[in-house]
Design a protein around this nucleic acid. Structure first.
Lengths: 202, 202
DNA sequence: GACTTGATTGAATACTCAATCAAGTCGTTC
DNA sequence: GAACGACTTGATTGAGTATTCAATCAAGTC
């Protein structure tokens, strides 16, 4: 096994573990035993545990298109439906994990109370990429939205609703909380599309 | 100092620390040194660290009216404005903490990945109390909302928006993310009040 | 004034943690 | 084939962790 493989295996394993158990509850030994890598190797590639986290956050940041958007948007052309297709992807994650799933970035954002600036900015960059992708959908549907609609703010709002809906479904272990939240969001977006005299919140 | 005082001081201190540093990052020693209580005393009242958390969650659950709602709703009678008054309270917390504030329940919900059932149900109960309070506002304004509006779902949605908005403001260290999210929420609620043919998402 | 109860003390325990280090292996280059 | 540097091994370190426990204390109660 070459060096790049080792580094990559560490990162993929850490990505899994941080998602399953969170960053704080994942020990370096956890990463070592699951990845079958020895501690010296890990510390050869990464100065410390936090640098592994940085690597994972960079993977998320650089992989949003291929890992997240492309799979969920395949065969979905309408920009508004793309928004709900992405949300449906999160719903699927919740279902297959018995409502144990949590958004990895959101979990980290609330788990780490005093983040290193590098870590915090990477979490923010991940949020920005996500909401920018949604804002792109709203931009693509700008002609169907009220004039002056703020696509950026709407993208951030959809991110907010996803995070909150996932948080509640996970806490209650009940997908109903996710579904109701998304239904309310759809109601709102429907009123926007219906051309209600709205969208002037910017 | 009597026993009730000691127990209470432990809980108040733990509440502070869990909010500042999170549950996992708060050590029992942290609680002991700040509360000036000795370890034996703590373990006399609480079987273990998790039971301190349970006590704190019970304090939140039982104190929502006096600690959260009453202060924010003083002098605010309109039920819809009460919703935004409560959200404004969270905005104030963000401002005075330089956007470091996090909702204590939301943070715990995402921080603890495999919660004990007792803990998870207490977090859920806290969410339920919060969104039920908001649902009560929507109920009180039912005559101004579209017929068939689902007050419970709307209450959960407002909780979602609060949690997501706080999460983003905290991650970006920028109150603008909170304000934009709340502005979108207000836009939505405004369209509901304007009697748009909506609210039929239930 | 003997006895009980509950609260308190703080040292000791058993354990986990991130991180280190010296000794090795391997491939590449001259 | 020698020399070099990148990588690997895994035992070890030492600080920090939650928790336990025997002993002490204060305040009742009969």
């Amino acid at each position: 096994m070459n060096a790049a493989d080792t580094r990559n295996r560490i990162l993929m394993t850490a990505m899994e573990l941080f998602w399953e158990k969170g960053y704080l509850s994942t020990s370096v030994s956890d990463i070592l035993s699951r990845s079958q890598v020895h501690s010296g190797s890990l510390y050869h590639f990464f100065p410390g545990k936090q640098d592994v986290l940085v690597g994972v956050l960079e993977l998320y940041r650089d992989g949003i298109d291929e890992m997240l958007l492309a799979p969920n948007w395949e065969g979905v052309d309408d920009p508004i439906e793309r928004i709900f297709a992405l949300l449906a992807g999160y719903r699927t994650h919740l279902i297959v994990t018995d409502c144990t799933y949590g958004c990895p970035i959101g979990s980290l954002a609330l788990e780490i109370h005093e983040p290193d600036p590098v870590v915090r900015e990477l979490m923010a960059a991940n949020f920005s990429n996500w909401s920018a992708a949604i804002a792109g959908c709203f931009d693509a549907a700008a002609d169907r939205l009220p004039a002056g609609s703020d696509a950026k703010a709407l993208g951030e709002f959809v991110l907010t609703v996803m995070e909150g809906a996932v948080m509640q479904a996970r806490t209650y272990r009940d997908i109903g909380y996710f579904d109701r939240n998304i239904a309310v969001l759809r109601d709102y977006i429907t009123t926007l599309l219906a051309g209600a005299k709205s969208g002037s919140f910017a």
